[in-house]
């Protein structure tokens, strides 16, 4: 399909541009390094340190991801408008809908890669800190090496070849973390009295996947806002939506039955707490498939509605750059 070729070309470029932004590497590296360092920071504390590592790892992933999604999606469109490349592309036979949706998809793909890296780091960190008594160095060491070596090797490569540092560092971070996961999988954990039963807590990926849906909502929101606003207001509004979505149940929940305004506000805010299922994992081994499907449908419907508004805004936008 001819439109698909355009869509892929624009989306691929948008993903590449997002990954080449310094802020993308800064957030990704900070989050992944923070996650793999969690067992060192939290182990040996009294009581429930394994659960603290797990919860903190996913919280870091989600908050960092929300920031990354909002920044990358907001910057992507705003930069194209500012730099004039939007005018150059839209002077070609490219429908505005294709351009807008492909840019959003490209940023979504970049955020997906971030999610893969952060969740790999979380799996390693949770295994490394699965006991309150001592660290599992077969997981901790490869994870720490991955986070430390990626920027160092990328820097040396940049010095030698002149290739972009940021995308190389992110690519290496992702590759090294996956390699660390593979290395750790070869060695069974030496720890005893584990807080979680298996070598790796794979159920983390189920919750991580749900949180990833929330990051998709952030990408959609930021992309829609960026059709009209510069990056800073986009970030502020996204932060407002994030906090509003986290607290919606507490503030709006009691008024949903008798207030139309409360129902409207509740529907408009991304209900991100619905994706935070770690507490549920303590009582059940897996996220129920029906619940996950419901979350996916909710995230898809909310994102589609926001993207429809963004598209309507972008179609009537004058490109003067």
């Amino acid at each position: 399909m001819a439109g698909a070729v355009q869509f892929r070309a624009i989306a691929r470029l948008a993903a590449l541009e997002a990954i080449r932004r310094p802020v993308f590497l800064l957030v990704s590296l900070s989050v992944c390094a923070g996650i793999v360092a969690l067992p060192l920071l939290l182990n040996y504390t009294l009581g429930d340190s394994a659960r603290m590592v797990r919860d903190s790892a996913l919280a870091l992933y989600f908050v960092g991801g929300w920031l990354l999604a909002a920044t990358a999606a907001g910057e992507s469109l705003a930069r194209e408008r500012r730099r004039g490349t939007a005018a150059a592309v839209l002077a070609k036979p490219v429908a505005r809908a294709t351009f807008f949706l492909a840019k959003t998809a490209g940023v979504g793909a970049a955020v997906f890669l971030y999610s893969v890296a952060a969740l790999a780091a979380a799996l390693l960190a949770v295994r490394a800190g699965a006991s309150d008594l001592r660290l599992d160095w077969t997981a901790a060491l490869p994870a720490l090496l991955a986070a430390g070596l990626a920027p160092a090797v990328a820097g040396a490569w940049n010095h030698r070849t002149g290739r972009p540092f940021t995308s190389a560092a992110f690519g290496l971070l992702l590759a090294f973390l996956l390699a660390a996961l593979a290395v750790a999988a070869v060695f069974p954990t030496p720890l005893e009295r584990l807080a979680f039963p298996a070598n790796f807590s794979w159920e983390l990926l189920e919750v991580g996947g749900l949180l990833g849906l929330g990051l998709g909502m952030a990408v959609a929101l930021a992309a829609a806002l960026a059709t009209r606003l510069p990056v800073t207001p986009v970030l502020l509004i996204c932060a407002g939506f994030f906090l509003g979505g986290l607290m919606a149940d507490y503030f709006l929940g009691p008024h949903l039955a008798d207030s139309f305004a409360a129902r409207l506000a509740y529907a408009a805010l991304p209900n991100v707490q619905a994706f935070w299922l770690l507490d549920a994992l303590d009582v059940a081994a897996h996220v129920p498939a029906a619940y996950a499907a419901g979350c996916a449908a909710y995230a898809a419907a909310w994102s589609a509605a926001v993207l429809a508004l963004g598209l309507a805004s972008f179609r009537s936008l004058e490109i003067s750059g």
């Binding site: 470029l13 004039g84 490349t85």
Partner: peptide
């Protein structure tokens, strides 16, 4: 637009390509 070629006043290019 598929029958139009456009050279903008500024060279709007993706710098890393």
């Amino acid at each position: 637009k598929s029958r139009i070629g456009y050279l903008p006043e500024e060279s709007y290019l993706y710098p890393h390509l």
